[in-house]
């Protein structure tokens, strides 16, 4: 009798596990569907004639020494650690658009894009800015608000002390460049700013006072030279 009770208890224990797994699968499917929906909208509205796929990964972040699959396989991996920062579709589009820009570079150039991919990987500082700017264009073309790029970067990228010997730009510089890009190319989004009451956007405004001042001076002087942002 004891054995029967133990067996029954064991079998009952399996039920919540099964339920939890089903719930997780449903959640992951929902996330994957959301990602695919936004991604395909970006691809179609921008008339991107190359194939790129998008995969949600439960892992927190990419392994340090693994290759960027956006460059090698044209497969954009969205890690859960980053996805957790995403609130609106605009922000999701901002994240995906950056990756699309990177994947698109892998289609250019000699040896099936191999050389250009290597250059993007090695010179990531330069192409980081390019991806940010292209992401803004992709968002505008697909009907998303490009200011979401600022919010996405502001939320997810840490501020290092310096970038002289780094393969990445200072986040404050990236944000300032994106803001400048939007100011010149898509000023309508700043004039009718939907994000003015967004706390994350306000935080960007607060932390970018000096850089925005430099931009205001550039506009006033009608200069074309690149600003040395902080």
């Amino acid at each position: 009798m004891k054995k029967i009770v133990i067996l029954l208890a064991l079998l009952l224990c399996t039920t919540p596990v099964f339920a939890a797994t089903t719930s997780n699968i449903a959640k992951e499917t929902e996330i994957q569907t959301r990602i695919d929906s936004v991604a395909v909208k970006l691809l179609n509205h921008n008339k991107i004639t190359k194939r790129i796929i998008f995969t949600y990964d439960k892992k927190e972040k990419k392994k340090a020494l693994s290759t960027d699959k956006a460059l090698t396989k044209r497969q954009v991996i969205i890690y859960d650690g980053l996805y957790q920062h995403i609130q609106t579709d605009d922000e999701l589009a901002a994240m995906l658009a950056r990756e699309i820009a990177t994947a698109m570079k892998s289609y250019d150039g000699s040896f099936g894009g191999w050389i250009d991919s290597a250059q993007v990987a090695l010179g990531s500082k330069k192409f980081e800015t390019v991806s940010d700017k292209r992401a803004v264009d992709y968002l505008v073309n697909a009907g998303y608000n490009p200011l979401a790029v600022i919010i996405f970067i502001n939320k997810t990228c840490p501020q290092k002390r310096h970038d002289t010997f780094s393969r990445h730009n200072l986040t404050s510089k990236r944000l300032a460049r994106v803001y400048e890009y939007i100011t010149y190319k898509y000023p309508q989004y700043l004039e009718n700013n939907e994000y003015i009451n967004n706390e994350y956007y306000q935080n960007f405004l607060l932390t970018s006072v000096e850089n925005r001042k430099k931009l205001a001076e550039k506009i006033k002087a009608k200069a074309t030279k690149d600003i040395d942002y902080e």
Binding site: Q119, L122, K126, K133, R134, D137
Partner: peptide
């Protein structure tokens, strides 16, 4: 749309 300046290497 976008300008990419020349870079090292």
């Amino acid at each position: 749309e976008t300008l990419i300046s020349t870079g090292m290497n």
